[in-house]
């Protein structure tokens, strides 16, 4: 298990390097001069002289690969440059905003699992009955619902009309309820269907029939022989969706004025704050890659074929 994890971590390095190179290149190749953005944000008149001066100061006059190496060297010391807007190190700013986002995502994930797993199992067990039909309709609704609209509806009814939850910003536990619900509802019913079809697929496996033939209780048959196998496609989809959820926080944070990295990123995009944009992209990659790693470890834990692979061949 340990060598397995170690190997996976080593594999991450080229991915991160690749991402940083691509982001770096794209930012510098795309129209829109960072020096001009800097001047605009610092409210200095963008004359040619001023631009040349700033280019020199920011190191933008050097060849691209030199710039990249300088950036990389700095990155190793956790120096990702200063925000054009605030002048503060983007690393510190981003980390400051990251925590609330992780909190929100985590709440949404937990909520999604709490709802979708039992509903998925029940939909499979009561296939084509009323329960299943309702969950099918909800899946359509969930897949077609714009999350920002859902957020507004929730605010309007639960906050303004009923006064049950606050309409925005961060604070006590109740503040997280509406944004988390907004983020989770979109995914929950899709997952429900996914889990349902996974279960139904594995229900017909010969080993499930054999488990039944030995007189195991239905609860054991489903829980042990079906669910553990059926959970793998579910986990794959889930890991992808966690990434999408993280990106989706952008919207929830915007609707509920949640002070997270999503809002930070959006304002950086709007203002063309290049160091902040670059670091946010990198951060998203790192988080997503880490999620993948965790998922792979869960896989290996669930499936001995992955854990013990290589025993037989070579």
């Amino acid at each position: 298990m340990i060598p397995f994890i170690f190997k996976r971590i080593i594999n991450l390095i080229p991915i991160l390097l690749g991402t940083s190179i691509i982001t770096f290149l794209l930012i510098h190749l795309v129209p829109g001069d960072p020096a001009e953005a800097y001047l605009r944000l610092s409210q200095i008149p963008p004359t040619d002289e001023a631009a040349a001066h700033i280019r020199k100061e920011l190191g933008l006059d050097k060849p691209l690969y030199v710039q990249y190496f300088i950036w990389l060297l700095d990155a190793f010391q956790l120096d990702f440059g200063e925000s054009f807007i605030t002048g503060d190190p983007v690393f510190e700013e981003a980390i400051y905003y990251l925590w609330p986002t992780l909190q929100l995502t985590l709440a949404a994930i937990v909520l999604t699992l709490i709802i979708s797993v039992p509903v998925g199992i029940l939909s499979a067990v009561y296939k084509d009955r009323l329960f299943d039909q309702v969950s099918r309709i909800l899946a359509y609704v969930g897949a077609s619902m714009p999350s920002f609209w859902l957020g507004f509806l929730l605010i309007y009814f639960f906050s303004f009309k009923l006064g049950l939850f606050p309409s925005g910003s961060r604070g006590t536990f109740v503040h997280i309820v509406l944004p988390a619900v907004t983020m989770c509802l979109v995914y929950t019913f899709t997952f429900t269907r996914l889990l349902r079809s996974g279960i139904l697929e594995f229900m017909n496996q010969p080993y499930v029939m054999y488990a039944r033939s030995r007189g195991l209780k239905e609860r054991v048959v489903i829980g042990k022989h079906v669910l553990k196998n059926a959970s793998q496609p579910f986990i794959t989809a889930f890991s992808i969706s966690i990434g999408n959820m993280l990106a989706g926080t952008v919207i929830a944070e915007n609707v509920f004025a949640w002070p997270g990295i999503g809002r930070y990123f959006v304002s950086a995009i709007v203002n063309r704050d290049f160091p902040a944009i670059q670091f946010c992209v990198l951060l998203m990659t790192i988080i997503f890659v880490l999620i993948n790693l965790i998922v792979d470890i869960i896989y290996a834990y669930l499936d001995p074929r992955i854990r013990l692979k290589g025993d037989q061949l070579k």
């Binding site: 982001t23 966690i242 990434g243 999408n244 993280l246 990123f265 995009i269 992209v281």
Partner: peptide, 18 residues
């Protein structure tokens, strides 16, 4: 495809501008 689509779109828009 290893990356979720929404993340990539967000990153691209981020880099290219709104």
């Amino acid at each position: 495809m290893a990356f979720p689509g929404l993340v990539l779109i967000l990153a691209f828009v981020g880099i290219m501008g709104p």
